[in-house]
Simulated assay, not measured.
Amino acid sequence: MDENSKIRLGISVGDLNGIGCEVVLKTFVDSRMLDFCTPVIFASNKTISFQKNALNLEINFHGIQEADKAIDGKINVVNVWKEIPDIQFGAATEEGGKYALLSLEAAVSALKKGEIDVLVTSPINKHNIQTEEFKFPGHTDYLAQELEGESLMFMITDELKVGLLTDHVALKDAPSAINPILIRTKVRTVEKSLMMDFGIRRPKIALLGINPHSGDQGVIGKEDEEILKPVIKEMSDAGHLVFGPYSADSFFGSNTYKKFDAILAAYHDQGLIPFKTLSFGKGVNYTAGLSKVRTSPDHGTAYEIAGKGEADYSSFKEAVFAAIQIFRNRQEYSELTKNPLQKQKVRR
């Protein structure tokens, strides 16, 4: 891709009864966004017309049948379905899940074919989207099946990046899911992403303890002593800048996180509660480690405000910019690794 060419940014609309379409349309009401990318929304003309009228938004779009027919300078809508869905703002319906999946499947198919360059996904309802075709706890696991690589749920801002050893698993199952192979894999995935996607040459990574106070030397659980510490020492001895385990209760409040390029939390809430507290509305959910770039806003369907025009689109807009920047960073990384002489020149 030419340095000045527009990135084709695919968008799945998520649950039509939530705020997905609202945050998408609000983001691109500002026509200056079209200077950065060519948006390709996977839905239908009638669906997007209904949403923009219901939300009283002034926005024009261009209907197409295939993603590769997208036109630069326009908001493109791929007609994935012809029928008119029954949209009930704020309701978790079977139909809402059906169309969320149709949009996602079409977008991922286009991504795999190279018809779009990156994908930004709007929020889904993890319950009503479940079908024979989609038996996953969320986007991340589905994309891990569809795209090559080792997937990692990576919550990112410019100042803070938090990955998870275990993501959408029940809390009672998280400790038993953590093992040396998983830890090594996740650390390497974070390292590679920091280098390839964010341009950090020697990433420094912190791991949070599994138990309170990282187990207090085995007094409060033995997982930290028997699993985390040996792997951290092994990887550190091998040259990885990996440190911990750190007690999670004071790690963020003391600003210790600022000393690291990324943090690996043991389980979902251990990482996401401080992340969203520190950066809600500006954070982005990035699926690191895959062959393609996918980002998402850091919030859910927000049924309670759906259809009211109250949704804050800041996180979705950040997800758009993050996808564009990561795609560009990957291009640059690829060029540098293909041309070592250029790499040496840049490092000077």
Rank of each mutant, 00 (worst) to 15 (best):
I210M: 13
N211G: 10
D197W: 07
L171H: 13
S193D: 01
V169N: 13
N211H: 08
L207W: 05
L208W: 01
M196S: 14
D167I: 07
S193L: 09
T157R: 14
R201W: 05
N179P: 07
T166F: 04
S193W: 00
S214E: 13
I205A: 08
T185S: 14
G149Q: 03
R184Q: 15
L152N: 08
T185R: 15
L194Q: 04
M155T: 00
E191M: 11
I156E: 06
G199R: 15
T185P: 07
L194R: 04
E191A: 09
I178F: 00
L152R: 05
V187Q: 11
D197R: 11
T189A: 11
I210C: 06
A177Y: 06
S151W: 13
I183T: 05
A170Y: 09
I210H: 02
T185W: 05
E159C: 08
H213R: 15
H168C: 10
L182Q: 05
R188T: 01
G199L: 11
L165K: 11
D158T: 08
I178A: 02
I156W: 04
H168Q: 11
V162A: 05
S214Y: 10
P180Y: 10
L208I: 00
E150M: 07
T185A: 15
E191L: 06
G149V: 03
I205C: 09
K161G: 00
G149I: 00
L208C: 04
V187E: 11
S151L: 04
L182K: 13
S193Q: 03
F154M: 15
R202P: 02
H168V: 02
